[in-house]
Each structure stands twice: as structure tokens, then as C-alpha cells.
């Protein structure tokens, strides 16, 4: 779609994929009522990988990454994040959630708190960081996403792109080891997509393990080391970006790519 959104070279020197497994999903199934939304998902993500998940709407890609921090519950199979299996044990879930950052399509900032309070809330209440230290960390990350001057405003006073960058900073304040992005640019104006993608690229350049559900194929090409195509709740095809875009194997993938890149 908007290849134009990224106009800079990506520095790959820190993007090293280690042998250590960050996420291991085995034979995972999920149903919404009687609707079989995810079918036999098998996926291993190593530390430092940058994975882009794409596919038509309703293919289960958002549900998949929402299962990784248990915003959705899977009914069959196994998900192991950072060596901890996701079960109904609330302690494990809270532990995993504090290690896994997540950005949503609609940002989901807390509108009754200032930008700074949004960023310091979880470190203070979950990690028990002293307030002053949490604020220093928050300002550090707000500077990184280039909006330290907005720290004392409320989310409602910021533009969509700024809000999404705050949301990224808010996740980073928890010093997560894995970041999940659920269509982070889908609700944004074209002019604001670039600034959010730029922040995400910087994150990738620092070696963060990332799973992104996105339709930004330019981002996938430049940043991802693996692209996963999903349809009807299944992983249809996965490959390195070059191969995936230039030489898609399945007919379903070809159709999807022709629709999304065709114009």
C-alpha cells in the first residue's frame, strides 16, 4: 500500500536473531462460540525476530496476537511466552503481560490521565518503581518517540499519530521483551502513518522482538525478517519478505498481494 511512508534506509546492524525462543505456539486452536477462528496454529518466534502478519480481514491475525498476551483465551494447544506457559493461572498471565508490550489500532490511551501519567502508571503500580524514577524513564521514552513536550497534556489534545507514539512509549516504559502491534496505523491519516512507522523501525533497529499485524507492505519489506500470510484462521504461507512478495506460492497469497499492491 503505502511504500512511500518509509523514506529512509533501515540500519540492520543491531537486528540479530538469536537462537533463544521467545514465543512458542503449538497446535493452537480457538473458537468464538462454535466459530472456529484459529486452526492448528504452529509458530515459533526467536528473540530479535520481526514478524509481519498480514491477511484479509476476519482471517484471525488480530486474534492470534491477542492470544499471545491472553486478551483472548485459546481453547486447545499450547502457547509458551518467555518460558512461561499461558494457562488460566492469573499470576502467570499478569507476569507475561508485564513482559509483553502491546499497541492497539485505536491506541487505547487512558483519557483521564496525562501523557506522563499514562506512561508511569504501569511501572509504578505493577513494577513498584518509585514515582520519580518512573517519570524519568517515561520522559526518556517520550523523547525517543519525539513528543516530550506533550508530557503534561491529555490524550484528547493530541493527534492520532502522536497518540499512537505515546501508546508505544507507554508500552516501552514497562521494558518489555516482546512487542505486539495490532494494526497500529490502520486508524491513522496517511500523513501520520509515517511518523508511527518511523518509531516502529527505530524499535526494530534496537533489536526488539516484534510481531506486527499490519497492511503496511513497505514496512514488511524493509523491516520484517519473516512475513506470515493468514486466511480463514490458518497460516497459509510464511517466508522472508523478498521471497514472499516476489515469489508467492499459494494462489490465495497471490490474490491477496495482487489486491493490496495492485493499485
Amino acid at each position: 500500500m503505502s511504500d512511500l511512508a518509509i523514506d529512509r534506509e533501515v540500519d540492520r546492524s543491531n537486528m540479530q536473531i538469536s537462537d533463544e525462543v521467545a514465543i512458542q505456539i503449538t497446535d493452537m486452536n480457538k473458537w468464538y462460540g462454535s466459530f472456529h477462528v484459529l486452526r492448528d496454529i504452529n509458530l515459533t518466534v526467536n528473540r530479535g525476530e520481526r514478524i509481519v502478519i498480514c491477511g484479509p480481514s476476519g482471517s484471525g491475525k488480530s486474534t492470534l496476537i491477542r492470544c499471545i498476551n491472553r486478551l483472548e483465551e485459546h481453547q486447545k494447544g499450547q502457547i509458551i511466552v518467555d518460558g512461561t506457559e499461558l494457562t488460566s493461572d492469573l499470576k502467570n498471565i499478569d507476569k507475561i503481560r508485564s513482559e509483553v508490550g502491546m499497541c492497539f489500532q485505536h491506541f487505547n490511551l487512558f483519557p483521564h490521565l496525562t501523557i506522563l501519567e499514562n506512561c508511569t502508571l504501569a511501572p509504578i503500580w505493577v513494577r513498584k518503581t518509585p514515582k520519580k524514577e518512573a517519570e524519568e524513564v517515561a520522559m526518556h521514552f517520550l523523547e525517543k518517540v519525539k513528543i516530550p513536550e506533550q508530557a503534561l497534556k491529555y490524550p484528547g489534545q493530541l493527534s492520532g499519530g502522536q497518540q499512537q507514539r505515546v501508546a508505544i512509549a507507554r508500552s516501552l516504559c514497562m521494558k518489555p521483551r516482546i512487542m505486539l502491534f495490532d494494526e497500529p496505523t490502520s486508524a491513522l491519516d496517511p500523513e501520520m502513518i509515517a511518523e508511527v512507522l518511523d518509531t516502529m523501525i527505530e524499535l526494530a533497529e534496537e533489536g526488539m522482538t516484534m510481531l506486527c499485524v499490519t497492511h503496511e507492505m513497505g514496512f514488511a519489506r524493509k523491516v520484517a525478517n519473516r512475513v506470515i500470510f493468514m486466511d480463514a484462521g490458518q497460516i497459509v504461507e510464511q517466508n522472508e519478505p523478498e521471497e514472499f512478495f516476489n515469489n508467492p506460492q499459494s494462489d490465495r497469497t497471490k490474490l491477496f498481494l495482487s489486491q493490496i499492491l495492485g493499485h
Partner: peptide
């Protein structure tokens, strides 16, 4: 309240009461 608020709170690792 939008469901996103509950989800964002959950995703940050806050427990129910917090």
C-alpha cells in the same frame, strides 16, 4: 467505556482491582 480501556489496562499487566 470502550472495551479498549479494559484491554489496555490488562495488556499493561494491571490486576483486576488495580
Amino acid at each position: 467505556l470502550p472495551r479498549g480501556q479494559y484491554e489496555a489496562a490488562d495488556a499493561l499487566g494491571l490486576d483486576y482491582w488495580k
